[in-house]
Design a protein around this nucleic acid. Structure first.
Length: 666
RNA sequence: GCUGCUGUAGCUCAGUGGUAGAGCGCGUCAUUGGUAAUGACGAGGUCGGGAGUUCAAUCCUCCCCAGCAGCACCA
C-alpha cells in the first residue's frame, strides 16, 4: 500500500499502481468526470498513469485552465500529426509542442511532393475531427532506447530515430499510442482524443522551419494551429487577432497618411508630413528630457573607413550586416566596371558607438569629466536579411535614441539607477505603465575574456539590485546567451494596450570597446585609466518606437503627438469667415489645426475626421458665429460641448502641451 | 537568406487565353445641409518587371523584384 495525500491534507491508503483516475472515482463521480490529469508531487501527469509510491496528489480539471490548455494543445499537436500521417503516407513526423495560443507540428513531407500548402489545411482539419470523434485512448508506454530506435528506423522515421538516439542517457523514453499510431513524447496527455473539443481548434497556416532550428539542417513544413478548451475561447482568440490586425501600424500608417515604404528603397521609411509631425514631437520631447538629464548631444559621420570598423571589431563580427561602399570615384565610361577591384572600402555606420569613442578621445579627459554622457539621434544602416524586414518594426535605415556614458567603475551603479529613473518617466509619459526588466547574458560569439564578462554581468546585477528592480514585480529574469557581442544587456520590455511586449530600452556595460579604441582618462592618481562605456537607448529606434506607439494607441494619439490636433468644420458656408477666425486663433496658439470648409454636410465631415482619428472637431455654424463659441466634438465621445473660443483654446493648449512641459517642477 | 502564399485604378477587391470591372477616393455641376456617408455626371489602369509558349497572354510556363505569414537572423 502507498499513501496519497490530497490538497486538503487528507490522506488515503491505496494499492501501489492505483491511478489518479481511480482516486478521483473514489472521491466522487463528479470529480471523476471533470478530472483530466493529475499533479503528482507537483509534476503534471496522465490521469491513467499509475502512482508507484507515496505522493502528494492534486487532480487537474478543466477549471485549472493553464494546465488544461497545455494538455489540450499538446494533444491537438499529436492529433494533427496523426491526421497528416494518415492522409499523406510517407510523411515523417518530427516534433510538435504547444505554444502560447495553440500548437504546431513540423513534418518532413513524403519524398516526391513539396511542402503542405494552405489549401490542404481544411482536409487535415477534417481528419483531425474524425480522430477526435473516434475518441481513441492515448496510452503511455515506456520503451528501451534500442527497441525504439529500431522501431523508428523500421517505420522510416529517420528524424525520430536520430532524436531517440540523442536523448540523455538517464531519460526514460516514452511513447504515446493513439490507436495504431504512435509518437515519442514525454507527455503528459489527456486520457483520450475525445477529451478535445473538435470545435475548439483551427489550423492557421503552414510555414517552413528547420530541423532543430538550424538553418544548415533539412527544411521541414510546420503546420500551425490555435487550440482552446471550447469554441467560445477559440472565437475570442480569433477576435483578438482581428483586433490586433486593425491596429497594424502598416494599415494605420496608410489610412492616416503617416508614411510609406516602397520597393525602390525597401527597408527605409518615407515619412509623410503627418507621420513626421509625430516623429518631430517625439524627438523634441526626447531632446528636452536628455538635456535635463545631463546628456550632451553630438552628431557623427555616416560613413567611415573600413580600417576604423576593423579596429572597433565591427568588420570582423558584424560585417554581414553592414553596407560596404567603395572609396573610389566611380568609372563614368560605358566600358569597364563602375568600381575597380582596387577600391578601398568604407561602410555606412551600423552603430554610433565607435564614433562616440572617437569624440571622447579628442583632447585629454580627466576623471573630473566623468561621467560624460554623449547622446546622438544616430541614423544607422544595417543590411538586414530581406525576410526580416517588417513595416517600421524592422528596417534597414533607422535612427536610434542612442547615448554612451563614459564613466568610472564606481559610477556604474549610480548611472544605471539614473538611467532607470529617466526611462521610467519617459515610458509613463508615452503611455506605457507596464514594463519588465531582463538581463541578457554573454552570447557564444563574443569579445573579451570570461573574467571581463563575469565582472560586467555582475556589475549589472548589482546596479539593478541597487534600484530595487530585481524582483518578480518588475518581471526580472536573466536570459542566458542573449547579450550583445561586446556586453551584457539590461533590457526593458514594454507591455502595450493589448498585452503584447516589445523590447525597446537597453543599457549595456562595455569594457571591450574602450580597450580596442584606446579610450583613456587621467585619474586622481595622475595615471591613465580605461573608462567604462555604458551603451544605452530608451526608445530603441524612432521608426520602430513610432510603430509601437501607433499600435498601442491604435492611431488615436494623445493630443500632443497627434498629427492634426483639431479640425474646424463649418456647417454652412456663411460660417466660413468665422471658421477662418477660429482656425487662425488656434494656429496662433500653436495648435496643429486644419479647416474643412468643403461643400459637404456636417455628418459627412464628422464621419471623415472621426475616421481620421482627429482628437477634436470644432464645429461652427451660424449660432456659434453669432455667439463667439465653438461646438467641440472629441474623438471617442458622441456628445458635443459648447464653449467660448477662449475656453476651447485653453483646453486644447493644455492637452497639446507635451507631458514634460506640463509639470514645471521637473 | 529559407518555405508557402500574394502582386489588377490612389485605397479595398472582383474578373477573363481575344488588350478590363465594382465600391470608396478624386474632378465638375447641383445642393447651404446642425454632429458618423446628399445627388448626378466624369476622369483615372503597359493587370509588379523580364523572357517564353500561342494566331493571340493580365490569365499558361520560367526567371527576377517586392509584399504577407512563419523559420533563421535581430549586432
Amino acid at each position: 500500500m502507498i499513501r496519497v495525500t490530497l490538497p486538503d491534507g487528507s490522506a488515503r491508503e491505496v494499492a501501489r499502481g492505483t491511478t489518479p483516475a481511480d482516486i478521483a472515482a473514489a472521491i466522487g463521480p463528479g470529480l471523476a468526470k471533470a478530472a483530466i490529469a493529475a499533479r503528482v508531487d507537483g509534476e503534471l501527469r496522465d490521469i491513467m498513469r499509475p502512482i508507484e509510491s507515496d505522493a502528494n496528489l492534486a487532480l487537474v480539471t478543466t477549471r485549472d485552465e493553464a494546465d488544461a490548455l497545455e494538455l489540450a494543445r499538446h494533444d491537438f499537436a499529436h492529433v494533427l500529426a496523426e491526421a497528416v500521417q494518415s492522409l499523406f503516407a510517407g510523411t515523417q513526423i518530427t516534433f510538435g509542442p504547444s505554444t502560447d495560443d495553440g500548437f504546431y507540428y513540423d513534418f518532413a513531407p513524403p519524398a516526391g511532393r513539396g511542402p503542405f500548402v494552405d489549401d490542404e489545411l481544411p482536409l487535415i482539419e477534417a481528419e483531425m475531427r474524425r480522430i477526435i470523434a473516434a475518441d481513441q485512448p492515448l496510452v503511455r508506454e515506456v520503451w528501451s532506447r534500442a527497441d525504439l530506435i529500431t522501431k523508428w528506423q523500421a517505420d522510416g522515421e529517420s528524424f525520430k530515430a536520430e532524436w531517440a538516439a540523442e536523448l540523455p542517457e538517464n531519460e526514460e523514453l516514452t511513447v504515446y499510442r493513439s490507436g495504431d499510431w504512435m509518437d515519442m513524447c514525454r507527455g503528459p496527455h489527456l486520457a483520450s482524443t475525445g477529451k478535445l473539443d473538435p470545435a475548439a481548434f483551427k489550423l492557421m497556416r503552414v510555414s517552413g522551419a528547420y530541423w532543430r532550428g538550424d538553418q544548415k539542417n533539412a527544411q521541414l513544413t510546420r503546420i500551425y494551429g490555435t487550440g482552446w478548451l471550447n469554441k467560445k475561447q477559440l472565437d475570442a482568440h480569433l477576435m483578438r487577432l482581428e483586433e490586433a490586425a486593425k491596429r497594424d501600424h502598416r494599415r494605420i500608417g496608410q489610412d492616416m497618411d503617416l508614411f510609406h515604404l516602397q520597393a525602390e528603397a525597401h527597408g527605409s521609411v518615407f515619412w509623410h508630413p503627418n507621420g513626421f509631425v509625430i516623429y518631430r514631437a517625439l524627438e523634441a520631447y526626447m531632446r528636452r528630457r536628455l538635456d535635463a538629464a545631463g546628456y550632451l548631444e553630438v552628431k557623427t559621420p555616416q560613413i567611415m573607413d573600413a580600417r576604423q570598423w576593423e579596429q572597433s571589431g565591427h568588420w570582423g563580427k558584424y560585417r554581414e550586416n553592414m553596407f560596404v561602399i567603395p572609396d573610389e570615384v566611380p568609372n563614368t565610361e560605358d566600358e569597364g566596371p563602375v568600381i575597380s577591384d582596387k577600391a578601398e572600402w568604407m561602410a555606412l555606420k551600423p552603430m554610433n558607438c565607435p564614433a562616440h569613442v572617437l569624440i571622447f578621445r579628442q583632447g585629454i579627459k580627466s576623471y573630473r569629466d566623468l561621467p560624460l554622457r554623449l547622446a546622438e539621434m544616430g541614423c544607422c544602416h544595417r543590411n538586414e536579411p530581406h525576410g526580416a524586414l517588417h513595416g517600421l518594426m524592422r528596417v534597414r535605415q533607422f535612427t536610434q535614441d542612442d547615448a554612451h556614458i563614459f564613466c568610472r567603475e564606481d559610477q556604474i551603479v549610480d548611472e544605471v539607477a539614473k538611467f532607470c529613473d529617466l526611462l521610467d518617466v519617459i515610458y509613463k509619459d508615452l503611455g506605457f505603465a507596464d514594463y519588465a526588466i531582463k538581463l541578457a547574458l554573454r552570447p557564444e560569439k563574443r569579445f573579451g575574456t570570461d573574467e571581463m564578462w563575469d565582472w560586467s554581468e555582475q556589475s549589472m546585477r548589482d546596479a539593478v539590485a541597487a534600484t530595487g528592480r530585481n524582483t518578480p514585480e518588475w518581471g526580472w529574469e536573466e536570459l542566458p546567451g542573449e547579450g550583445a557581442f561586446y556586453a551584457p544587456k539590461l533590457e526593458f520590455h514594454l507591455t502595450d494596450a493589448i498585452g503584447r511586449t516589445w523590447q525597446v530600452g537597453t543599457i549595456q556595460t562595455d569594457t571591450v570597446l574602450p580597450e580596442r579604441l584606446d579610450a583613456a582618462y587621467i585619474g586622481e592618481d595622475g595615471a591613465k585609466h580605461r573608462p567604462i562605456m555604458l551603451h544605452r537607448a530608451i526608445l530603441g529606434s524612432y521608426e520602430r518606437f513610432i510603430g509601437i506607439l501607433i499600435e498601442h494607441y491604435a492611431g488615436r494619439f494623445p493630443v500632443w503627438l497627434a498629427p492634426v490636433q483639431a479640425v474646424v468644420a463649418t456647417i454652412v458656408s456663411d460660417a466660413d469667415a468665422y471658421g477662418e477666425q477660429v482656425t487662425a486663433k488656434l494656429k496662433a496658439a500653436g495648435i496643429r489645426v486644419t479647416s474643412d470648409f468643403r461643400n459637404e454636410k456636417i455628418n459627412y465631415k464628422v464621419r471623415e475626421h472621426s475616421l481620421a482619428k482627429v482628437p477634436h472637431l470644432l464645429v461652427v455654424g451660424m449660432r456659434e458665429a453669432e455667439e463667439g463659441k465653438v461646438a467641440i466634438r472629441s474623438l471617442g465621445s458622441d456628445g458635443q460641448r459648447i464653449m467660448t473660443l477662449d475656453e476651447a483654446i485653453a483646453m486644447l493648449v493644455g492637452e497639446a502641451t507635451p507631458p514634460d512641459l506640463k509639470d514645471a517642477t521637473i
